[in-house]
């Protein structure tokens, strides 16, 4: 079936089975390989993208559900201030280890900061607990979210 949606601000259309996971469409059909496959069971968060602003698991999200919607991936994260703050903080604090989980971590962090401009540690842990990191970068992720929040508030954050 033909499915039309907006991807990182651009109109896109794909011709695929509607049950195809969004992740497959992003990576294979549209060749945007920033979003990663981890578990395929909605358990790890590596495939996190935004659909109409909600963080979703692309690995278990049939593409027909994005028809007519706004999809944002890591490739489009820096299109707004929140995304730029997240990426900037990630670089400043050198969050990444192997990197596999990090696109999903950044997308989840951006979803959190879009809903809560000043999350405390407990709020961060609650929001990010669906995004696993086998390298254990959790303390740096938490610090980077605080940094990004401070940046968005116009504070130095350091």
């Amino acid at each position: 079936m033909r499915i039309e949606f907006t991807l990182n601000g651009e109109a896109r259309a794909v011709e695929v089975a509607g049950t195809t996971p969004l992740l497959w469409v992003l990576r294979e059909s549209l060749e945007l390989s920033g979003t990663k496959f981890g578990c395929g069971r909605a358990l790890c968060g590596a495939c996190t993208v935004h659909v109409d602003g909600t963080a979703v698991r692309a690995c278990s999200y049939p593409v027909r559900y994005v028809a007519g919607k706004q999809v944002r991936t890591i490739e489009g994260l820096e299109r707004d201030a929140v995304g730029r703050a997240v990426v900037g903080a990630w670089i400043d604090l050198d969050v990444v280890q192997c990197g596999w989980c990090q696109p999903g971590q950044c997308m989840a962090a951006a979803a959190l900061l879009s809903a809560d401009a000043s999350p405390d540690d407990a709020t961060i842990d609650g929001a990010m607990s669906g995004n696993l990191c086998r390298c254990g970068t959790y303390p740096r992720i938490r610090a980077a979210i605080h940094r990004a929040a401070a940046t968005l508030r116009g504070e130095d954050g350091r």
Binding site: G40, R41, A42, T48, T54, A55, V56, R57, C59, S60, Y61, P62, Y65, A108, A109, A111, L112, S114, A115, D116, P119, T123, G126, A127, M128, S129, G130, N131
Partner: peptide, 18 residues
């Protein structure tokens, strides 16, 4: 909660593959 909404994983129908 933000980034962990029910709808982040749960769609209007069962996803039996996942």
């Amino acid at each position: 909660v933000p980034a962990m909404r029910c709808a982040s994983c749960h769609l209007p129908e069962n996803q039996d593959l996942a």
